[in-house]
Amino acid sequence: MFNQFKTAILMTLVLTLITGLIYPLTMTLLARAIFPYQANGSLITHKNKIIGSKLISQDFTEAKYFHPRLSAVNHNADKSGGSNLGPTNKKLIGRIKSDWKKLKLENPSKSVPFDLITTSASGLDPHITPEAAVFQVPRIARLRKLKEEEILKLINRHIELKQLGILGEKRVNVLELNLALDKY
């Protein structure tokens, strides 16, 4: 029993050294050497300043920008999570219905994309569906005094396709799209 106890303690220490220190630190060094951009969080630099991460959504509320999905954590990247509202929760049903009405007023000609009126799982979803981007085009074209076709072209250039042809869904990165819009 005592021998086993001693072994248990030593084993914990040795395995901690291997899997808890050597393994993650080796990965960190390798990552920094081989994939420095990804390893450091895919940060985007604009005019010599870091203005965000490609993978983390931002709280775009100005009408001249494409808007991201709703976030249960207000796009604060020091938190994350969804609304966790259940399907029979009055709060959820009420929120979705009122947002739907607002968006319908903004663009009555198209059906409201579902991803724009639901909260994402992470609260930091950097993408919207291409339909959700197209839906916002009239508003942005009006404010930026651009032709709708030009913006549609811009969206088309930013559509990320399914990986390997079948994995995931088509999507548009909101931050990259808005950056492109500012540069236009």
Binding site: G41, K49, I50, T61, D78
Partner: peptide, 24 residues
Amino acid sequence: GVPQNLNSPTQIITLEGKSQTILQ
């Protein structure tokens, strides 16, 4: 794109001028 570093949180100003703290 999964980060692997020991950096402290990154403080940034977003395109709309809001502040955001990115943890990695």
